[in-house]
């Protein structure tokens, strides 16, 4: 038995809904008979048709939340809808920065627990799948109490496919007065420039880790990625060390990627990294330590010095 009402927290930017939001709408069609999206910001109306195409027959528009972080106002708006009798059986929430804030706030407002790091759902929408211990163990879980069920879902858990739905009805769902909790103010936004394909969409990813030795060596990772028309990624170790921006991080606390080819250079393969990339179709690892855990998931492992193998690879690709 499927669920009646499934809502999706849809993040809509200037360029449209995020891919994770579309993945969640696609899955919502499968587990629910009626799908609605909850969105906020200035761009909901202009992209509502796309939310409809992916499954939403209704869009609750919280509207512009101004300079405040969205966690408090968006959770407040959803709680107000629920209090007014308009309630979902389940709410699918993207595992993003703002998504996790909304999930935590809403969980308290509704006094409902949250299941996070969901990577799969049963067809009836009542049972979740998770992975643990670096992806070596799979768990199924479920709520034992009443809904709304709050699920925080990781990227790439489902494929996004349009369902050909009509343009949805857009309903205003303004945020209630938040009090002191809503007193955050974003004073400036900084976008770190990136060229080439996006990390979570690239068919080829070349990633670097601590084995590179120093920040300047990351250039060869970018060069190799460029030559292969791919994106450059990084392990948490070198992001924490400040060598590359966080946007490049692959792993549990970074991006989940599933490219056709993943080339790990100087990455030992801590479980925190493996979680984010072991779904790749083909994995190549280059590392000087033959006992490095990364080799356990590699289709081709080169036990060698990244400072020799990667430059040689770059030279050979250039001369082709």
């Amino acid at each position: 038995m499927a669920l009646d009402n499934v809502w999706v927290l849809a993040e809509v930017t200037e360029s449209g809904p995020t891919s994770l939001s579309l993945e969640l709408l696609t899955e919502a069609r499968k587990i629910g008979s009626k799908v609605a999206a909850v969105s906020w910001g200035a761009h909901t109306a202009e992209h509502a048709a796309m939310l409809g195409e992916y499954g939403a027959s209704k869009v609750y528009d919280v509207g512009d939340v101004g300079e405040t972080l969205p966690g408090v106002p968006v959770a407040g708006a959803i709680a107000a809808l629920v209090a007014g009798g308009d309630r979902p059986d389940a709410l699918l929430i993207p595992a993003s920065y703002d998504g996790r804030d909304v999930a935590g706030r809403l969980s308290v407002k509704l006094d409902r627990p949250v299941l996070t790091n969901v990577v799969g759902l049963s067809d009836d929408g009542q049972s979740t799948q998770h992975t643990l211990f670096g992806g070596t163990t799979a768990l199924s879980a479920r709520f034992t109490g009443d809904g709304p069920f709050l699920y925080v879902v990781r990227a790439k858990s489902f494929a996004a496919e349009p369902g050909g739905g009509a343009s949805p009805e857009v309903v205003s769902a303004p945020a209630p007065e938040a009090g002191p909790a809503g007193a955050t103010k974003v004073s400036a936004r900084h976008v770190e420039e990136r060229s080439g394909p996006k990390l979570d969409e690239a068919p080829v990813i070349v990633s670097g880790g601590r084995g590179l030795g120093s920040a300047d060596k990351y250039e060869m990772i970018e060069e190799l990625a460029n030559l292969l028309h791919g994106a450059a990624g990084a392990s948490r170790a070198i992001v924490d060390a400040g060598w590359v921006p966080y946007a490049r991080q692959v792993g549990q606390t970074g991006k989940t990627v599933k490219p056709n080819v993943y080339i790990a250079c100087g990455i030992s393969g801590a479980t925190q990294h493996l979680v984010g990339m072991k779904g790749s179709k083909n994995i190549v690892a280059i590392n000087k330590d033959q006992d490095a855990p990364i080799f356990s998931v590699a289709d081709l492992g080169i036990v060698g010095d990244v400072h020799k193998v990667v430059p040689a690879l770059i030279e050979k690709l250039k001369s082709r």
């Binding site: 972080l69 103010k185 946007a247």
Partner: peptide, 10 residues
């Protein structure tokens, strides 16, 4: 943030 970082105060 996904794209970089925000300056936020409260």
């Amino acid at each position: 943030t996904e794209a970089g970082y925000d300056e936020v105060e409260c």
